[in-house]
Design a protein around this nucleic acid. Structure first.
Lengths: 111, 111
DNA sequence: TCTCTATATAACTACATAGAAATATGAAAT
DNA sequence: ATTTCATATTTCTATGTAGTTATATAGAGA
């Protein structure tokens, strides 16, 4: 009756990737990069995050392979590595809407 | 040049949903429920989680609308509410594989 | 070389949460 | 009513990490 157990290691690495997307700041960074590459200074302006904090988030996104980077003189330019991340976000939004709708219906039944 | 800013509230709730999926234990619970509904006792056995801990994870999954529950006598039966969560996981796995492959290629270039 | 600018890292604090143990709730059965 | 079983909740501890400040690195130019 039980389902084939996924390797604990698999569960860990997948969960870890979800964790990277579980910060509003990082989602905003990805969203800002949706239209195209930006350097760190532009991202500071676009997101309002302070330099050190943004840099940390960028390292995390980069380590997870969500963004690529290249140096251009003094600047470092970041860009989305895998646009399927936006598919993920859209799916998540869809679930969110369905869940919210279900909750509203539930409330209506109570009244 | 900057992208349309998403409402901070939107970013927060989407990030919060990703956070729910960012725990190996919760992913395992969902995976165990993939084939069909199970009660808590069966889930304890299937996952190896202790009762209190599993119960907490189930509350979190339920609050997020990932699972539904119903009582059956002494038992409480949980079931996946929205199977699109598995689409999310599959997408994440795909990204993971591409990222891993890219890293291997990168290593080859260094040698 | 020294200096300036852009970005990264270290060190720290504050807060969130996973896990475990103890206790509470709730439904059935005697 | 009380006992028993299944599940939920509370309380506590330990760990992880976001944000901030201060400092380090790296490249460009004088």
């Amino acid at each position: 009756m039980s389902h084939k157990p996924l390797a604990p290691e698999t569960l860990r690495v997948v969960a870890q990737r979800f964790k990277i997307l579980s910060e509003p700041a990082r989602l905003e960074v990805l969203n800002m990069l949706r239209k195209g590459p930006l350097n760190v200074s532009e991202l500071i302006e676009a997101t309002g995050l302070n330099q050190a904090n943004l840099s940390k988030h960028l390292q995390i996104l980069h380590a997870g392979g969500f963004v690529m980077r290249r140096r251009d003189g003094l600047f470092v330019i970041y860009e989305v590595a895998d646009h399927s991340v936006f598919t993920l976000c859209d799916l998540m939004c869809g679930q969110l809407k369905r869940h919210a709708t279900a909750q509203v219906k539930q409330l209506r039944m109570v009244r």
